[in-house]
Design a protein around this nucleic acid. Sequence first.
DNA 1: ACAGGTTGGCTAGCGCTGCTAGAATCGGGA
DNA 2: TCCCGATTCTAGCAGCGCTAGCCAACCTGT
Lengths: 194, 194
Amino acid sequence: MSIQTRRERERAERERLIVTAARELAEAEGWDAVTTRRLAAEIEYSQPVLYSHFKGKDAIMAAVAVEGCAELAVELRAAREAASGARARLAAVGEAYTAFGRRRPALYDAMFTHAVDLPFATPEAPAPLQEAFGELVRAVEPIAADGDDVPLLTETFWASLHGLITLLRSARLPEADHARRLDLLIGHFTAGRV
Amino acid sequence: MSIQTRRERERAERERLIVTAARELAEAEGWDAVTTRRLAAEIEYSQPVLYSHFKGKDAIMAAVAVEGCAELAVELRAAREAASGARARLAAVGEAYTAFGRRRPALYDAMFTHAVDLPFATPEAPAPLQEAFGELVRAVEPIAADGDDVPLLTETFWASLHGLITLLRSARLPEADHARRLDLLIGHFTAGRV
DNA sequence: ACAGGTTGGCTAGCGCTGCTAGAATCGGGA
DNA sequence: TCCCGATTCTAGCAGCGCTAGCCAACCTGT
């Protein structure tokens, strides 16, 4: 029993090591630099070890994505709690969301851009994903009109933020006016509210 | 002179052949299936021929993207002209845009998702890109408030549509409620207008 | 303390990718 | 007809994700 648990603990630690190394490498040099060989070297094990923990590279990215969602949720919550008033809160959360996407582009891509087989909009979605979405819901709920489907409205708001970030980051939207675009978006979503 | 022009014409035709083959292959089997070997086989030339026309695979994708923008512009224009009233037109254009993204996912990715070094938000952007954006501008302009920066508002609206499509297509938003989300978006962008 | 068996990591390699150097071949001009 | 230049092909490089099969280290039971 003790030996078994020690082994399981060591395995779990190494799994954390893999995810952390993948994330740090991706944030430092982009996902293109995260090859299985490079990652194996980083954790000082051979390549096949990765495959005893994860089904493949995509699964490693998915694990990084889940970690990222947990952090995003924390940052969104902090932003919401720091502001007061329905509109200011939505603006703060929108700001925090886009700031996250720009500050941690590799992490953001793993979470929301890269094709991944994480269950998203279902009850089976990993808890951190639901928490992050829940933070958005809490920010959107106060500005919903009577009869609005709040989750659906949140999804729409989220998609708008996501579009702003991805187009901005791929240089399809000029960097300069990001804040003004975000303002316009918040304005239209909070039209007629405090 | 005659020989020279014939050669240039043949070269141009082959370049069209490459772009068309790349596009068809991508639409049929996705961009992962578009390898330089496969593409070379498709056009019945050897691999290096591709590199005498384009700098690399990304440049081929960029050429496909430009072609896609021209088509998108046509479809947006048709949608706008078929509808009447500011709000209905914006809705029709939004509908057409998202329908395009869902009907031609590979094309859409080349245009707006894949990292590409096409100049976008500058005067040097290829004409088809500017036309497609121009169509969006024409749809947004009537619902702009006094003092609104119309191009900026268009960019914001575009980003929202883009976010809806990408999250939908990556299964991060459930397929079912797409139309309702689009409705919500149009509603918020046209609040208080006809 | 030692043999047996199992667990687990490593070496080596497969088939693929984008891309390119240099050989070979084809076509037009003297 | 011969030659020269442009053009196309063959062959190969380095690197990718992933895996089969060998080998060693470790725990277990005597």
